[in-house]
Design a protein around this nucleic acid. Sequence first.
DNA 1: CTTGGTAAAACTGTCGACACTTGTATCATG
DNA 2: CATGATACAAGTGTCGACAGTTTTACCAAG
Lengths: 240, 240
Amino acid sequence: MSAGTAPFPAPHRRNLALEAVQSLREQIISGALAPGSALAEPTLARQFGVSRAPVREALIELEREGLVQFETTGRTRVRTLTEADFREIMEARVALESMAASRAAQHWGAEDSAYLMENIAAQSQAPTLSELSRLDVELHAHIMERSGNQRLLRLWQSIRWQFEMCLALTHRVQKALECTPRDITVNSHRRLLQALASGKPELAARTMASHIENSMEWSASETSTSEHPLGLAMETFLRR
Amino acid sequence: MSAGTAPFPAPHRRNLALEAVQSLREQIISGALAPGSALAEPTLARQFGVSRAPVREALIELEREGLVQFETTGRTRVRTLTEADFREIMEARVALESMAASRAAQHWGAEDSAYLMENIAAQSQAPTLSELSRLDVELHAHIMERSGNQRLLRLWQSIRWQFEMCLALTHRVQKALECTPRDITVNSHRRLLQALASGKPELAARTMASHIENSMEWSASETSTSEHPLGLAMETFLRR
DNA sequence: CTTGGTAAAACTGTCGACACTTGTATCATG
DNA sequence: CATGATACAAGTGTCGACAGTTTTACCAAG
């Protein structure tokens, strides 16, 4: 709520386009639209019962979110994420979220602590993997909002869905909840909350960075090349 | 050149749209299109001699770059940047560029040092303010590219033009080259180069952060509220 | 001279159409 | 049976049009 910055009102443009974005995003992340699938405007337009114009805008938005890819011919495909992509995303998250944590620690309030505590409690009882990571992402979204920096928030939002796609990909390999050491995650979030509530920007930033880095430690699989699609790479990793 | 990440090929989409983006961007940054100006699709389409479709895509891109704002009615205006916006942008730059510097320091090569040295030399002899800041931005762009992280680069590019708009706004107030302590800037860039070439990620990141923070030190004008458009605020600042 | 209301102008969101390009299936040929 | 040319289907980039809504211009009334 930092005064002075016009709150970047969520562009009210794109009405039918927005619905298409949400539907396609969900399908891509859930895997219903597999990586590499072609996304043709006329086909999608027929599916949604709209004309090509809104579909076209939706595809532009999804490209911006990194979920689809334009080829030089103009064709659109669902993006295939590799392990290297995953590392890039996590690195970008560290950059954005550390800064956000640092600023959030300066405005931190009791309500914020309460929100995080509630979220963490829910995580420790989440029945499914997707529920667990939904809560996880929401916790981080809250911190980004509390940074008070609309730009930071916007930048983060533009990689958020790629991150969720990575999460979903690994979930499809892990499947069972037991694979995720939930206690470790919960403890890490508790430390993060402590750092934020301490009001020390430096500490908050450092804690956030190591929180994110730890959360991806399993990805240290170090296959020969990192160009494998994420799903496959994870399978080979878990099979060892 | 980190292998494994599809190099986010500059979307080949938007052909007429791309021209419109470049033209409008230039006009907005140069001030030919003043902050607050209305950008109506039919008008722009007539001006560019194209239909509304490419213009519409261009406006979406400019909104994403933060140069333009959609109102709830769907109308589009040139964004008015305030001092608070400027601080947000610099904070986001610190987040992204510190991380990039850290990674760039790990891949740093002699060619990179050579490029920076040449750039810095050119800066010390730049004849105009806009030439000086063009070089400045290009130096930072080079570092972002050398981070090897396509996502970091892309995020940076999506605030780059807002930053350039801020620079141009202050330039219009400063006007004369003498107002900018050029030696300080050049020295700061030399220290930055040294840190990058040292190969120490931590040092590079810290140096980048303080470089950016120092470069905006003059903005510590601290007017009563920070909601003033940047140009006006700068005028009142310099008038004291 | 201000104010309130109405008519005209302009703009946005969306649609269907067309030219040109790309991908694909078919078919004749070596 | 492989191969290369060829016709066909499908897709992209762009355009003009229309309905509904917002803004502006204008005029009457206080």
